[in-house]
Amino acid sequence: KLPPGWEKRMFANGTVYYFNHITNASQFERPSG
């Protein structure tokens, strides 16, 4: 399970990334916590 605010998303080319809808942060590494 991801930390609060984070969700797993995917680009059109299939690349997975993680987006935080609270802070609008995005990253390729899975957030810890």
Rank of each mutant, 00 (worst) to 15 (best):
G14K: 03
P4A: 11
T15W: 06
P4Y: 12
S32E: 14
E29V: 07
G14S: 03
G5A: 06
P31D: 01
F11A: 15
K8M: 15
K1L: 13
E7A: 06
P31R: 01
R30D: 12
N20T: 00
P3T: 03
G14V: 02
R30T: 09
W6R: 00
N20I: 02
K8R: 12
G14H: 02
G5R: 02
K8F: 07
N20S: 05
G14E: 04
G5E: 08
P3R: 03
E29G: 06
P3H: 03
G33L: 14
N13L: 04
T23G: 02
G33K: 10
W6D: 00
A25W: 08
F11R: 10
T23A: 04
H21E: 10
F19P: 05
N20G: 01
N20H: 05
Y17V: 09
Q27S: 10
G14T: 02
R9K: 10
R30W: 13
T23R: 03
P31F: 01
P3I: 03
W6Y: 01
Q27W: 05
P3N: 03
Y17K: 05
Q27G: 02
G33N: 13
Y17D: 07
H21W: 14
Y17E: 08
Y17H: 05
K8Y: 07
K1E: 15
V16A: 07
R9G: 04
F28I: 11
P31V: 01
M10D: 05
Q27N: 04
T15H: 08
E7L: 06
F11Y: 14
I22A: 08
K8I: 14
A25L: 13
A12C: 12
F19G: 01
V16S: 07
A25I: 13
M10W: 12
L2E: 09
N20V: 01
E29Y: 07
F19R: 01
N24D: 07
N20F: 02
T15L: 12
E7D: 05
P31I: 01
S32Y: 12
R30Y: 13
N24A: 10
R9A: 05
L2H: 01
E29A: 06
W6H: 00
T23L: 07
F28R: 10
P4H: 12
T15Y: 07
A25M: 14
F11V: 06
E29D: 11
G14P: 00
K1P: 15
N13R: 02
P4W: 11
S32H: 11
G33D: 14
Y17W: 08
Y17P: 01
A25K: 13
N20E: 03
E7M: 06
A25P: 00
P4N: 10
L2Y: 05
L2T: 03
Q27P: 00
